[in-house]
Design a protein around this nucleic acid. Sequence first.
RNA 1: GGAAGAGUGGCAGAGCUGGUUUAAUGCACCGGUCUUGAAAACCGGCGUACGUUAACGCGUACCGGGGGUUCGAAUCCCUCCUCUUCCGCCA
Length: 426
Amino acid sequence: MLRTEFIRNNTELVKKGLIKRNWSEDRCAILEEVITLDDQRKKIQTSSDSLLHEMNLLSGQIGDLYKSGRREEAEVLKAKVGELKENSKELESKLKEAVDNIEAKLLTIPNVPNELVPFGNSEEENEVYKDWTEALPDLGDNALAHWELAEKYNLIDFKLGVKIAGSGFPLFRNKGSKLQRALINFFLDEASKAGYEEVVPPLLVNAPTATATGNLPDKEGQMYVAERDELYLIPTAEVPVTNIFRDVILNEADFPQKLTAYTPCFRREAGSYGSDVKGLNRVHQFDKIEIVQIAHPANSYDVHQEMLDHVEGLLQKLELPYRILRLCGGDLTFTSALTYDFEVYSAGQKKWLEVSSVSNFETYQSNRLKLRYKNSEGKKQLAHTLNGSALALARIIAAIFENNQTEQGIKVPAVLVPYIGFDWIN
RNA sequence: GGAAGAGUGGCAGAGCUGGUUUAAUGCACCGGUCUUGAAAACCGGCGUACGUUAACGCGUACCGGGGGUUCGAAUCCCUCCUCUUCCGCCA
């Protein structure tokens, strides 16, 4: 969420950002509306506060009068305060209305994109920031898709998943499940080596937590809900891990905060059907290792680069062909200022699969989280939050299956052999 | 799940028969005096958010969250949450 004061002082800058996100000139009028509403709010608060002040004074006098036994005079004042109270209640509800109104509008305003974010309407216009320069693997017409390989080698049972839960809930088995476990351990070890503290967070979160990361109220349809207990299944570890820092005030010496977590992720993916959902391409439950950093505003983009390097290193170690995209304004997540997507080429389907998204949210999340730090003057400032997938498993598995298929089976990437204990899946 | 008790400022801890509480006091922290320096002692300061002001300052709200009673609530009532102890159940 942007701060009202920020919008007030940087209206043109915010407007430029919205236009990069393909907002129309008319739609940008919301910025002026917020400012006008905030002006009104200030006026209401001023009169409300002074009325309360008056009532407080009179109440004090009533107390004094009672003590000195002057009951009649006290009664007169009581009647007077009673009248003021009517007005006060009215002002109070107006104030609440104004505040709620402003907040509701702020929630519909996305983050201001970084200067580097290219213009564009959709994912087709994302900028290829770093392309794969070697030849892409060409396995000919006999190359199988990962769901065919999964069946051939008995690695994933999609039908059993349907029986037990429904479509989009794959059941990994045999060497398929071992590969999954190996990847989790590999990614967590790499994150630890890079200085991230490992945490195991709750997989269900409460409403305040889901609200702080922006999953509520507008993205409610994306999450599974345990209604009876008012808990939400996490769509990503970002939600519980970032909330570690809700209502936290750090010291400058506390930077950077680096956390990593392995969790399953649950996504309803309502409304997405078709060839994209085949096999592991888009599922309701998948495993992911997330990296999160809380950074000082002065160097959060260095931190961003560090995280990109980390993810890139993982893909290199797995020997997978990848490219990095810089998301355009039209494809940029609501809360992000700058996002890079990592895509892995999957030779069986002959397409690029998104396996990681690394974003800098600047203060957009921390404003809602109330995540601040004390600067050298002792003043409280909002910190920057960043996160990225390192990495999302299901599609990595799909890519390994497809790219590493040979006549004698699927070759396990060398870096995983110590984790998994065998060289071939066959 | 049942019963009882408790949640107060960075920490500890009063207040909880409603009105000099603008939340006592201690510790911690910051500034000063003293000292070669430090400690001790003494003096002063010490929360957050919002509004208002050129500024000093002033005002409002906040004693787990929300609601209520009252002219007035940390204090009384309702409700939810959390913690502690005991019982039950259980990996």
